[in-house]
Design a protein around this nucleic acid. Structure first.
Lengths: 116, 116
DNA sequence: CGTCTCCGTCAATATTAGCTGACATGTTCA
DNA sequence: TGAACATGTCAGCTAATATTGACGGAGACG
């Protein structure tokens, strides 16, 4: 059961921002993702991608010197959704497709204390 | 948008264990919850409950000197589910009700290094 | 072959979260 | 009023995590 890793991966705002980028672009190279995530450097993005991949939330495709990442809907995301549905079963009829895209990068908390 | 707090709250295995207890018991006093969470002390459970409450995942009802907690399905859990559905929309037709209850307390990682 | 690009990894550091034990608050009841 | 109970809160310590900058490996291309 790797839903633990998935919950942990989903906890970080930057990782959710990366997921938002991938959800919008379908497939992205690591460099292209790092370009869109301006708040941290490329190394950090690379590590976040590793966390997401190990957690089973994104999948990787290698092509030459590039690595393309994409959302893995068949991975542990299913387990996460199942768990949440089991806990919050009441009053959860339709929750699909109601949130605008830029809500995904929900960075607002104690991380990123002002871009220097 | 407090889905950030909700994701953060859901990241902790003990908090997910608390949610599992509440999902099974419907309503529980703080002490009863602390009795079921044996890996940490009562103070820690109290703080976890505060995190869950601030995140909008559980609700509190005071009655005398007791405080009863219960799952808040109408809170930010909806936002969390919406976000996840938006990101992992492909291949997610039916994810409701498929996971046994004890999967909820998915404690397995580096926390809890042996009960003293 | 040499070089450049793309990208993952490593070591060191700083920030953060969680746990415990003691104390404070509010409630019930004798 | 005072004792017992249920909980929340605080300070201090410890452990985990993220970030950065430097480095290494693999492919492309002259």
């Amino acid at each position: 059961m790797d839903a633990n890793l998935a919950f942990d991966a989903l906890a970080d705002p930057i990782r959710r921002e990366i997921l938002g980028v991938l959800a919008a672009e379908d497939e992205c190279s690591a460099g292209a993702i790092a370009d869109r995530i301006t708040s941290v450097g490329r190394s950090a993005v690379s590590m976040h991608l590793k966390v997401l991949r190990v957690a089973g939330l994104v999948s990787e495709r290698r092509e030459g010197r590039f690595r393309f990442y994409s959302i893995d809907s068949a991975g542990s995301a299913r387990d996460v959704l199942s768990l949440l549905h089991n806990v919050f079963r009441a009053g959860l009829q339709s929750v699909g497709g109601a949130v605008p895209d830029d809500e995904l990068d929900g960075r607002r908390a104690v991380h990123n204390p002002g871009t220097p």
